[in-house]
Design a protein around this nucleic acid. Structure first.
Lengths: 203, 203
DNA sequence: GTCTATAGGTAGATAGAC
DNA sequence: GTCTATCTACCTATAGAC
């Protein structure tokens, strides 16, 4: 064969990353297979050597994107987790969905997808819950924080005015700081999110 | 003329209601003008007598849907507001997006829409904030609650298992009850959302 | 105001050459 | 594995009859 299996794996991964970025920015349903393939320098005919259908790509993107989000929230100090939350609730994250978390972008489309895609989503979301629990104390608080940051970023993106967006983000940030246990030495409320901060992941 | 202006207004309103329901259930971008018009018993050619473009319809749907949400949250007793929150975080609401709030369904599509559509959205969302403030005390708590319930319903819909969905909803409900001032006599935590409860609005 | 018909474009998916 | 070409279906929007 002219192409190695390693090459196929690399192409598939590039498709997941580039496709995920496009889906987060422009929506998955409204983006054609042609555009997705063009983003990795290929044509639409080659798509079906990697995925059985467009829906199968969405499923793989969900798995890939949320897998990365779990890595970001797990395995880090309390202070770094606070920093991650601060970045999540930043204007930079709101303005650059293609670099950020998939949850505020793709959840409604996943909700309309098939049963198996929703099962993959659910499994990943429960893993995210586990990864965050050590930092929050209990499941109830964790679900509250996750719902809150996802909802806030999504609503901020649908707004138009920068100050309104910032007001929402700062308000939610404040409430979450009140919710978190003050265990670490860095548990004080920081609100200087005006500095240049990278989005939630993909550093 | 063969049709009265009243008839046109009625047709337009039917289009907003039926179109809003379809958009919340199936997504706006992925639904064709043909389907939208068929839902009110007309054909696609007649659409452009009511809206300049499909994007103009989204803008009108946003205004119509959020206007109704504001009515639901404003002008009611503290106890009725708690009931509304309970309905919002119910499985019934999660399972019937077409009857519920537009925020967890359409926000990502609004975020990708034009500036003017986002301005309409922003104005309505700020009105919702005002309507809820008397029940919550301050803006920060209100933003927190709104972000939380919207995020929770959206994430629950993207899950597959009913118990997982319910666990998320109940967790968020619990945290919100801790957040609300215990002013009214009905400020105790109720968790019996298993009863048949109508979704957030459209009773 | 609503219809049918249609323009002009793009969608997801397949076939066969290389 | 990737290409080009193509099928069938659907999309938004317009034109003209009623």
């Amino acid at each position: 064969m002219r192409y190695t299996p390693e090459h196929k794996d690399k192409t598939r991964q590039r498709l997941l990353d580039a496709g995920g970025a496009i889906a987060k920015k422009d929506g998955f349903g409204t983006t054609g297979v042609d555009s997705l393939m063009a983003s990795v320098g290929l044509t639409s005919g080659a798509f079906y050597a990697h995925f059985r259908s467009k829906g199968a790509l969405l499923e793989a993107i969900v798995d890939n994107e949320l897998g990365r989000s779990i890595e970001v929230f797990g395995q880090q100090s309390h202070e770094r987790m606070l920093q991650t939350l601060d970045n999540y609730l930043s204007l930079a994250h709101v303005e650059h969905p293609e670099l950020g978390c998939a949850l505020p972008c793709l959840s409604p489309e996943i909700a309309r997808a098939g049963e198996h895609t929703r099962q993959v989503f659910e499994q990943r979301l429960l893993q995210l819950l586990e990864a965050m629990r050590p930092h929050t104390g209990d499941d109830s608080k964790t679900w509250s924080i996750v719902s809150q940051v996802v909802g806030a970023v999504m609503l901020a993106r649908a707004m138009d005015n920068k100050d309104c967006r910032q007001a929402l983000l700062q308000a939610v940030k404040q409430q979450i700081m009140l919710l978190l246990p003050a265990t670490g030495p860095a548990a004080s409320v920081r609100s200087d999110s005006s500095r240049a901060s990278p989005p939630a992941h993909k550093e």
